[in-house]
């Protein structure tokens, strides 16, 4: 426990500070890769909150990313308003959607696998609806207009590679700090109690519906914020890429591999999963055989969960601890 905390803070602080300082010297590829790493660390923290802290296996998080992304893109491109205003609308909408799913699940006793499938069903249904809704661009999606030369990133929330890098780094740092704070806060204890044994927690006065729905809502709002940045980073938003099952899977792989319920797991998970996806992709291309990336990525996932039962972060902590003792 102690080593876990200390190691985490030192490594985390060093990583975030190092990445901030190193920014001017990074080449384009590394910077865009790290941008994705940090963005998915943020997504990972959002799903860690619902899944790792509260025990709700959500396979529909792309829905919230999509809602956030669409809200900001529609507000800016259709109405010419500030993207901040878009966030102000998109995050509450996503939170309401998350709360609604959480409430339905609680009200009707939908849990475990069934909860995961409920979330998939809602997300897929929304994806199909968005694909057929002209106002949001249908399957053709919405392309963002070219940036003006006088663009101010903090007003448009768009910019060059450095802006997205900084924004994603900020989100990853803030997300990790937020989860660290929540873990030791009252609500964090209540969430973990509910996750470990809901009936026992309720008998101790923990208001299960309130806290579970709250977790769903916060997690959804966080994911929506990440989705807005992701849409801006891509310069375009499609229902398939922003609301599809593939993104939902991508969002939750990081925290599960990194170590669910831990503060630094999602960060470590993103550091491994995102480059793994990129490397297997380039490797597949250079070998000239399509499908190799998918095979390599799949095998790596199976290997990692097979070898590290509790996830990467707990394994790292255990390794450092044994080194410590040997000294």
């Amino acid at each position: 426990m102690q080593v876990d905390r200390r190691l985490g803070w030192i490594a985390g602080a060093a990583l975030f500070a190092g990445c901030a300082i190193a920014a001017p010297w990074l080449d384009g590829f590394t910077m865009s890769l790290l941008t994705l790493v940090f963005l998915f660390a943020w997504f990972g923290q959002a799903s860690n909150l619902a899944m790792g802290f509260t025990g709700q296996l959500s396979l529909g998080h792309a829905l919230f990313a999509g809602l956030g992304g669409y809200a900001v893109v529609i507000i800016t491109t259709r109405y010419g308003l500030s993207p901040w205003f878009g966030l102000l609308i998109g995050m509450p909408i996503a939170a309401a959607a998350g709360a609604a799913i959480g409430w339905l699940a609680f009200r009707f006793g939908v849990r475990d696998v069934y909860f995961a499938l409920l979330a998939i069903a809602v997300a897929e249904m929304m994806r199909v609806i968005f694909s057929n809704w002209n106002f949001v661009g249908g399957t053709g999606g919405i392309f963002l207009p070219a940036l003006s030369p006088t663009n101010e990133p903090l007003r448009t929330l768009r910019g060059g590679a450095l802006f997205y890098y900084a924004a994603a780094l900020f989100l990853a740092t803030a997300g990790t700090a937020l989860l660290a704070w929540l873990r030791g806060a009252r609500i964090g204890y209540l969430w973990r109690a509910l996750r470990d044994d809901e009936a026992a927690a309720r008998a101790l006065g923990v208001r299960a519906p309130l806290h579970k729905i709250l977790a769903c809502a916060i997690s959804a709002a966080m994911t929506a914020l990440g989705g807005a940045l992701y849409a801006h980073l891509n310069g375009v938003i499609f229902p398939d890429s922003m609301m599809g099952m593939a993104l939902s899977i991508q969002i939750i792989i990081g925290p599960i591999l990194g170590g669910l319920g831990t503060v630094f797991g999602p960060l470590v998970g993103a550091l491994v999963v995102v480059p793994l996806g990129e490397i297997s992709g380039t490797l597949g291309q250079s070998l000239g055989i399509s499908g190799m990336n998918s095979i390599g990525y799949g095998l790596a996932l199976i290997l990692l969960i097979g070898l590290l039962p509790g996830g990467l972060w707990p394994a790292i902590v255990a390794g450092v601890q044994s080194l410590w003792r040997r000294r």
């Binding site: 696998v113 399509s290 799949g298 095998l299």
Partner: peptide
Amino acid sequence: KFMARPQHIQFILFIGIALVITGLHLA
């Protein structure tokens, strides 16, 4: 080997299997 593991781990296992099968089809 994964029968006793939590659901989310089994989920990743099958996602991995699915990716390998899809990759094999592609290849």
